[in-house]
């Protein structure tokens, strides 16, 4: 009995440690005072409402959304064929390619950001938006390849051969037989990529310029100037968005299979 008691305590503490800050942030955003504080200084919804009135939040939210949606779509357009090629054909150094594709996860974001700034944005005169888009695509690509690979590995290749013998071209077999059967893997990769891109800080930090910022970076700079509870309110809303997305994904896709 003491064993279960102790393990429950540990689980409880771990959960508190993981989820506790979330509740602190929600509460801090509910403050009626003018400064970020916990416990909150009175109760009101005004900071939650103010979030929607800050112009720069609206702009940076739109940019973050754009990057998360289109960066992830671009990563999937590159990643799905790559994953398919690696799993179906005995490509020389297939495993090495997978590792290299994973580099952006392993290399610290600060370095990736600096490298992109130094060697893409400055010398090639890329616009910041384009650089951000490329960076987010690259960051999401490893997830796309991994997640799609794992659902491809569960798919037997003789199905495609059967489709070919029934008259399909190889490409036709991919669209008619492979894609419908890895649908949920692709969707899972999209969600994972979306969340990853949306929450990305270090790379975006280097590539943000005047007037072009992703939401997390904008929140950082907002806090440097204004120390009011609206940042806490916004954080709580964003966390809620992630939770809802992951919850829905788990419910409909069994998301945890892929991650």
């Amino acid at each position: 009995m003491t064993g279960t008691w102790a393990s429950r305590l540990i689980i409880g503490l771990t959960l508190t440690f993981l989820i506790g800050p979330f509740f602190i942030i929600i509460a801090a955003g509910l403050s009626a005072g003018d400064f970020l504080a916990f416990p909150p200084d009175g109760l009101s919804l005004k900071w939650y409402l103010k979030v929607f009135e800050v112009e720069s939040f609206r702009e940076s939210f739109a940019l973050s959304m754009f990057l998360a949606v289109f960066g992830t779509i671009a990563a999937l357009i590159l990643g799905v064929p790559a994953a398919y090629a690696i799993s179906r054909y005995q490509i020389p150094y297939g495993e090495t390619i997978k590792t290299i594709v994973a580099a952006p996860i392993i290399v610290p974001g600060i370095i990736v950001g600096l490298a992109l700034l130094r060697y893409l944005v400055v010398p090639l005169n890329f616009t910041i938006t384009l650089a951000l888009f490329l960076a987010h695509t690259a960051l999401v690509l490893p997830y796309a390849v991994r997640v799609v690979s794992s659902s491809l590995n569960n798919l037997r290749s003789d199905m495609e051969e059967a489709a070919v013998l029934l008259g399909c071209s190889r490409l036709g077999a991919f669209f008619r037989v492979v894609l419908p059967n890895i649908q949920s893997g692709v969707l899972a990769a999209f969600i994972l990529g979306f969340v990853t891109s949306f929450n990305q800080v270090p790379v975006s930090l280097f590539l943000s310029g005047p007037g072009v910022r992703t939401l997390p970076i904008d929140m950082l700079s907002y806090m440097e100037i204004t120390y009011d509870p609206s940042v806490a309110a916004l954080s709580a809303l964003l966390a809620l968005m992630s939770v809802v997305i992951v919850f829905v994904a788990e419910k409909f896709l069994g998301f945890s299979r892929y991650v």
Binding site: R156, E161, A163
Partner: peptide, 8 residues
């Protein structure tokens, strides 16, 4: 096919 290879 020995494994049937049906489309799931």
């Amino acid at each position: 096919f020995q494994s049937y290879a049906l489309f799931p």
